[in-house]
Amino acid sequence: MASIKEFQVTFDCAEPERVARFWCEVLGYVAPSPPEGFARWDDYNSSLPAGDRGAWFACSDPTGVGPRLYFQRVPEGKAVKNRVHLDVRVGTGLVGEERVAALEAECARLVALGAVRVQLLLADENNESCLAMQDVEGNEFCLD
């Protein structure tokens, strides 16, 4: 039997800390403390060479259950639809109007944080309703 490996999800982005802090709010994750010897992340970044400042940021599930999320600055902008995206499970166990109401409520919360609503996909014979969205840099994700 194969063992399950620990993993992290890595995001390429322009502003790692901004995107990481958005996902902290979405998922209830926490940002790490600044490196030892620094009171704030700004202090740490100021100590680095100009090209390395703000090059990465990370966040993690405070319960230790979910994967670590790592955000790294890349020079190119997002050009096409993600090949992989996160499904944020807010409607698990709900169906019909009750599910759509839960999706809409979470959508409203996330739009206030800078997310963009893309499209509500209503249930069909194979899938329950979900809501397609984009994060603060346009990365697609779904409320499921």
Results as ranks from 00 to 15, higher is better:
53 R>P: 06
126 N>Y: 15
25 E>S: 12
75 P>V: 05
46 S>P: 01
13 C>H: 04
68 R>P: 00
46 S>Q: 15
81 K>Q: 10
38 F>M: 03
133 M>S: 04
38 F>S: 04
79 A>G: 02
77 G>D: 07
87 D>V: 07
134 Q>E: 14
68 R>F: 01
107 C>L: 05
64 G>K: 03
142 C>K: 11
78 K>D: 02
99 R>P: 05
66 G>T: 01
124 D>S: 14
136 V>K: 10
144 D>Y: 14
140 E>N: 11
61 D>A: 05
102 A>R: 12
2 A>T: 13
102 A>K: 09
107 C>N: 11
24 C>T: 13
4 I>Y: 05
51 G>M: 10
135 D>M: 07
102 A>V: 06
106 E>C: 09
54 G>P: 02
90 V>A: 12
86 L>H: 13
22 F>W: 03
18 R>W: 00
48 L>D: 09
63 T>E: 11
116 V>W: 01
52 D>V: 05
48 L>A: 09
143 L>Q: 07
42 D>M: 01
24 C>L: 01
86 L>T: 12
53 R>Q: 15
50 A>C: 01
54 G>K: 05
36 E>A: 06
116 V>S: 13
15 E>F: 01
6 E>M: 04
79 A>T: 10
137 E>V: 07
67 P>N: 04
136 V>Y: 03
88 V>E: 09
78 K>Y: 03
